[in-house]
Every structure is written in C-alpha cells, then in structure tokens.
C-alpha cells in the first residue's frame, strides 16, 4: 500500500466510524510517513509496519468520540423513554392484577365472615341451612387465604421485576455514557427459604381445605335439600322452585 492509499483508506474508515477531527489524525500518520521516508524506508514498508487501516480506525472508535458518545447517550435516553412507557403500562397492568387478587381475597373473607355469622348484608348471601353455611364459610375462608398467599408472591415478583428493570435502565445509560455498569438483578424474587416453606405449607393446606369443603358443601346442601339442584329449593338467584 502506498502512502496515499493508506491515508485515504484510513480517512474513509474513520469517517465510516464517525470519528471527529479526522484531519488531525491523518496529519499524524502523514508525518509518520515523512519521518520514516527520511530514514530510508519505502512507503510499502511503512504502511505494513503501521498496520491495517481498518484495525487502526477501529481503535479510534473503541476510544469513543465525544460527540459520538453524547449522541449515543441521547439516543439511549430517547429509546429508554419509549421503553419506559411500555414498561410502565406493563407494571400498571401487573399492579392492577395484584389489586384484583387482593380484592378477591378480601371478598372471600367477608363472605366467609357473613356465612359464619349468618348475616346477609343487603340480602346478597342466599339462605341455606346452618351446616351448609359453616362448610361453605370454611371453603371460602380457605380460598381467601390461598389468594392472599398468591398476592404475597405476586407482589414480591412485581417488586423484583421493577428492581431488575431499574437496574437495566441505569446500566443502559451508564453504557451509553461510557461509565461502568452494576451487576444485573435477577427477575426471580428473593424470599427467604423459611418464609417460602411456610407460605407453601399454608397455600397447600388452604387449597386442600377449599376444595374439600367446596365439594362437601355441595354434597351437604344436596342431602339437606333432598334435591340435586338445591339452589332451586332454597330460592337462590331470586326465584322460587316452580313445583
């Protein structure tokens, strides 16, 4: 490669990599040629000793140009801003689901309480014999506990997901502005194994209790009412049995 070939190739590569002050860089390499030529080397020899212009240009790139990095930072922030909107909507959705589960759990508890106490707020609880009330009450209170456990797990999951996203957010900006990054945060929530074991036991017991009592409640109701469709007999859902 001749002096001119080398320099124009280098200039092209630098331009391609969006490096600033190219003239300044080229003049350094041009002077290098001038000194070496004066020492009696040929242009080809000098170019070979300098190295591949593509590689040299990439070394300038890895250093990161100031304007370039500022541009990258701006692009990263804009991109992250857009991503934040989606992630925000997603987190709102997840939180809404958490709220629904919590409300469900609370409703279960209130209904169970009403059944145990034989009270019917706004006549919403259909009437049934005492035994059926207790069995259904047990079933619903178990369901309430089960949902509450689900709520705890889900809340821990959302919290960890938000943390993980926040770390990703910070690291992306750090990379764009050439700063060091912090270790990433895993998505799986950190729950102490003892607490986790307890929660699982509670969930399992309440699940068994809920299903057993639910089936038992239906059986008891069928037996007490003497029909398979006990809800007709007891006049649930606002109408009486026809016959």
């Amino acid at each position: 490669m001749t002096r001119n070939e080398f320099l124009s190739k280098l200039a092209d590569e630098l331009k391609k990599n969006n490096i600033g002050e190219i003239d300044d860089i080229i003049s350094e390499y041009d002077q290098h040629f001038a000194f070496k030529l004066a020492d009696g080397f040929s242009e080809e020899e000098i170019a070979a000793k300098l190295g591949n212009p593509v590689l040299i240009a990439s070394q300038f790139e890895s250093i990161g140009d100031e304007n370039n990095s500022r541009g990258r930072k701006a692009a990263a922030i804009i991109g992250l801003g857009l991503l934040d909107i989606f992630a925000g909507a997603f987190f709102i959705l997840l939180s809404a689901w958490e709220a629904i589960m919590a409300a469900f759990s609370l409703c279960g508890a209130v209904i169970a309480f009403s059944l145990f106490g034989s009270i019917s707020p706004w006549s919403l609880i259909p009437n049934m014999p005492r035994l059926a009330e207790i069995v259904f009450g047990l079933s619903l209170s178990s369901l309430s506990v089960l949902t509450a456990v689900g709520c705890i797990y889900f809340a821990a999951f959302i919290r960890q997901l938000m943390r993980s996203y926040r770390r990703f957010h910070e690291n992306t900006i750090a990379i764009a502005s050439g700063r060091g990054i912090l270790p990433t945060v895993t998505i799986s929530p950190k729950i102490s194994s003892r607490f986790n074991r307890r929660l699982r036991t509670i969930a399992l017991i309440s699940l068994i209790l809920f299903t057993t009592c639910f089936v038992l409640g239906i059986l008891v109701s069928m037996i007490l009412s003497g029909t398979l469709e006990f809800w007709h007999t007891w006049g649930w859902f606002g109408y009486q049995a026809v016959n």
Binding site: I25, E28, Y29, H32, L50, G51, P53, I56, Q59
Partner: peptide, 23 residues
C-alpha cells in the same frame, strides 16, 4: 515528545504495530 518520537520509542521496546500509538 512529538507523535513519531513516541511511536519509535515504543516500537523499539515493545512489539506493536506502529499505528497503534496514535489512537
């Protein structure tokens, strides 16, 4: 030093391509 001096100094002692010094 000027750039070429630095480049010569380094390539005299350490095995690198001459072009590495300027970046």
């Amino acid at each position: 030093c000027y750039g070429y001096e630095i480049s010569e100094y380094l390539s005299k002692h350490i095995d690198i391509a001459d072009g590495t010094v300027y970046p």
